[in-house]
C-alpha cells in the first residue's frame, strides 16, 4: 500500500510540474497574447490540482487538506478575473492579432459604442419609453 501511494505521489507531482513546463514552453512559442493566455492557464487549475493532491497524499495528513482546497478554489475563482482583464486590455490596445480569430463578436459591439455620442447613452436594440409611447395609438395626449 505504501509503495502504491509513493508511486501515485510521484506520478502526481511529476505531472503537475509538467504542466508548469508546458506553460513555459507555450509562453515562449505561441505567437499571440491570446494564445499565450491559453498556455498560461495550464498550471493554474490542473497543475495545482495534481500538485496539491500529491502533497496531501505524501504527507498522509488530513490537516492540510482544507487549506489546499481553499487555495485551489481561490485559484479557480480568480484565474478568470485576471484572464478577463488581460484579454480585454489586449483586445482594446490592438495587441491581439484579430486576423487569427475565427469569430469576433466584440468588434461589432465596440463599433456601435464608438459611433454613439461621447456623453450619450449606449444605444441598445430595445426601443426607449418615449418611442413606445409615440408608437402606441390613443396615448399621445
Amino acid at each position: 500500500m505504501d509503495m502504491f501511494l509513493d508511486i501515485l505521489v510521484a506520478v502526481l507531482l511529476v505531472l503537475g510540474c509538467l504542466m508548469s513546463l508546458i506553460a513555459g514552453i507555450g509562453l515562449l512559442t505561441f505567437p499571440d497574447l491570446l494564445t499565450r493566455m491559453h498556455a498560461a492557464t495550464k498550471p493554474q487549475v490542473l497543475g495545482f490540482l495534481l500538485i496539491f493532491a500529491g502533497l496531501a497524499i505524501h504527507l498522509r495528513s488530513w490537516l492540510i487538506v482544507p487549506a489546499l482546497i481553499v487555495a485551489w478554489a481561490m485559484q479557480l475563482l480568480t484565474a478568470p478575473v485576471s484572464a478577463h482583464m488581460i484579454g480585454r486590455s489586449g483586445y482594446r490596445t490592438k495587441h491581439a492579432k484579430k486576423e487569427t480569430l475565427f469569430s469576433d463578436e466584440l468588434h461589432q459591439v465596440l463599433d456601435e459604442v464608438s459611433a454613439a455620442p461621447a456623453t450619450g447613452p449606449i444605444p441598445v436594440a430595445k426601443p426607449s419609453r418615449a418611442e413606445r409611447r409615440q408608437g402606441a395609438p390613443g396615448e399621445a395626449d
Binding site: 505521489v9 509562453l27 500538485i51 504527507l59 486590455s89
Partner: peptide, 30 residues
C-alpha cells in the same frame, strides 16, 4: 507588450508556488 510581461510574471508566481509545494512534499513539512 506590458500585458505579455504581466502574464509571464503571473505564471512565474504559479511556478514558485508549485516549487514550494514540491519542497514541502520532499522535506515533509508544512
Amino acid at each position: 507588450s506590458i500585458l505579455d510581461r504581466v502574464l509571464g510574471l503571473d505564471v512565474l508566481l504559479l511556478i514558485i508556488s508549485a516549487g514550494l509545494c514540491v519542497d514541502m512534499a520532499v522535506n515533509r513539512h508544512t
